[in-house]
Design a protein around this nucleic acid. Structure first.
Lengths: 144, 144
DNA sequence: ATGCATGCAAATTGTTTGCACCCTC
DNA sequence: GAGGGTGCAAACAATTTGCATGCAT
């Protein structure tokens, strides 16, 4: 909700060309408390930016991902749609309610485990994903 | 590698109609030490079952997933392709080498964490996914 | 002025669906 | 013989790509 971020400078500092569309996309990502899909971003922008195309969204999301500004993830077990989140929120994971879709951020429970595992196996662990699926208190009540 | 599993009976016991294709698909899953994609299964079967179609593979994988016989997952960060694994291997996770694609099964490090989290938050945790990405010892050497 | 970014449309890829026919129970 | 399963083709959905033009540097 940091309505005031100076995306123009943010992009300039990263050496990325400043365009209306890029600022708009970053704005949507920043305004959302949970990860958003490309289509989700598109839907929010379509009104204000009549000409905007999904390919533009995708191209920029890929660009941002490569520049390590956003993180791509799949939130649903079955859906093939990807979701994106600004990386400035710090490392965390998600718990998703299978019923209502609520998304809860979680602190990473693997810190120590990764260190141990790395030294045990000789693997250099670069990235990891953790997702929990379940029913939030409200929805689990309804189920009985 | 349990070449001897009696899939016919296996299916019958589950109340699932026995077909050549289903037995073949289960065979491929069982013979593979790592998760396989629908296309992967198709490629292995195309020779022996000339008429077989990807839609048959998908339909059956969905069926098996619904019957809780296999588990669907995405192995690659970027790829949208789903992978499938027999559930008879027990609960575990995967570490994937980003360089050579080697897949290592991992014991679940979250058992206690999930219990705690569940009682702390009131969430009923139904399922979860953990994936680690990195470089296996061999590949990390090459990178320097 | 140069080159990267965008709009637009068409191509790709993974997966699903409709329908007629076939096979299992 | 009845209903589910399969082959085949066509539909879908998410994402990518080619190309001409437009805009940021």
């Amino acid at each position: 909700m940091s309505n005031s971020i100076d995306w123009e400078n943010f992009l300039k500092e990263k050496g990325i060309r400043v365009t209306r569309q890029r600022i708009a996309i970053l704005g949507v990502l920043d305004n959302s408390s949970k990860p958003v899909s490309a289509r989700g971003i598109f839907d929010e922008l379509a009104a204000k930016y009549p000409g905007i195309r999904l390919s533009t969204i995708y191209r920029n999301l890929n660009h941002f991902t490569a520049k390590n500004m956003v993180k791509m993830m799949e939130l649903n077990i079955e859906k093939k749609e990807s979701y994106y989140e600004l990386k400035n929120r710090g490392h965390h994971h998600h718990m998703i309610c299978l019923e209502c879709g609520e998304i809860l951020p979680l602190e990473c429970p693997l810190k120590n485990y990764l260190l141990e595992l790395s030294s045990e196996t000789g693997y250099k662990i670069i990235d990891h994903r953790v997702k929990l699926y379940g029913l939030c208190p409200a929805c689990s009540k309804e189920e009985g």
